[in-house]
Design a protein around this nucleic acid. Structure first.
Lengths: 218, 218
DNA sequence: AATGAAATTCAATGAACGTTGAAATAAGTT
DNA sequence: AACTTATTTCAACGTTCATTGAATTTCATT
């Protein structure tokens, strides 16, 4: 049974997740993490080997569940479609709903996790490499579904459309509060239910405009 | 004449911009910056007071030009429209083109600057506060134009649509190379001309779907 | 050439960094 | 209860951090 130090491990992971999300990898020290977790400083290195390994462990912990549930959702809607080809709106929802739902209702750990992913995603230091490492297979599976939903589309238009979609989604779960300021409180970045309502139609319309009607030329 | 130390100041700003863009505020040291700029370590503090002030100076240097040219472009297209109401596509282009154009053709300094903005934008540490500080007045002006272009829209739909637009744009000039990986080289994140062609139709279609046709309910 | 302010160099500050090895403690196995 | 291994504690390692004060150099103006 590998359970003696498991509680400590999880406490360190929780604190690391929270603090990395707030200030980024370089903005947080091992001492801050272990102090927040109320464990000895040396335990972070004992359990994870190095600060960098701890960072990877934080990312990996929730990535697996996330990839699993998103894939299941995609397969589900494809199975429900009579011809096996899911609708654009359903694909977009299957891609984004598991994320927004966990950020909204999964507890503070999930919220921190997504805030961290949002930072990593837009940084040249981690963006290309880490995101590819953790999420590439799943994204490729979704892009295949998108291609089937838009059989006439040119490949580049699919990729750019996905890119726009991805940017909109990532900024959403970054939850920086910027839109709260801009709208003078009329809209709240934490209202992810409002996003779940609006993202599929918005993004699907963009996809169709770009991928169905000859795209950029019109 | 305030020019004796100006060359040094600019060299420090250039190196700071480059390195902050690569590794973020906390991931860069004053020593790395001054070494890259080939000036003495103490000069960063002499000219800028503190590391944090240097960071702000980097952000401010190009923000002013950026806000100026984007506002001019918006006023230009509004003046050209017969009723003073610019088209959705034109507004979107006026908002994004000055950024993408400078990132593509403005030299490495501009490219670094946008990469830095992309990181800041998605981080809770800086995102809400700094972006608001440097870009709020301009964005509010654009949102006013969007409201005129979509007179029947509900305000929340405008804000959320702008939010999606903003996320797509920011990820674009982050240029993390992720889409290069995903597309196996069929699409390049550095090909901002391809984005300029596709972003206005994609985003405009999303706006219309959300803001014209009753939005989320359909 | 002399003056004085601005700019630069140099050396050093105390604080904080990630990491480590040895000692102490806790828990599972015999 | 004795033994063994995993975990935790404690103190310290050497390095690097942002910042600073004093000395030196540079340069425009006399």
């Amino acid at each position: 049974m590998a359970k003696r130090g498991e509680k400590t491990r999880q406490k360190i992971l929780d604190s690391a997740e929270k603090l990395f999300a707030k200030r980024g990898y370089h903005g947080v020290t091992i001492r801050q993490i272990t102090e927040d977790a109320k464990v000895d400083t040396a335990l972070a290195n004992y359990h994870f080997g190095s600060k960098r390994n701890l960072f990877d462990a934080v990312l990996l912990r929730r990535a697996e569940e996330l990839n699993k549930v998103r894939l299941e959702k995609l397969e589900e809607i494809e199975a429900a479609a009579e011809n096996g080809v899911a609708s654009l709106e359903d694909i977009i929802d299957a891609f984004s709903h598991p994320l927004l739902d966990r950020s909204e209702r999964g507890g503070p750990g999930w919220k921190s996790y997504f805030a961290l992913i949002a930072q990593i995603n837009n940084s040249p230091e981690w963006g290309g490499k880490l995101m590819t490492e953790y999420f590439d297979p799943l994204v490729r599976r979704f892009i295949a579904a998108l291609k089937r939903a838009l059989p006439e589309a040119r490949e580049e238009d699919i990729y750019w459309s996905y890119h726009f979609f991805s940017g909109a989604l990532v900024l959403t779960y970054a939850e920086t509060g910027r839109i709260d300021n801009l709208s003078d409180g009329k809209v709240h970045s934490s209202d992810l239910d409002a996003v779940q309502l609006r993202m599929p139609p918005f993004i699907a319309a963009g996809f169709r405009r770009l991928c169905e009607t000859g795209g950029a030329k019109n």
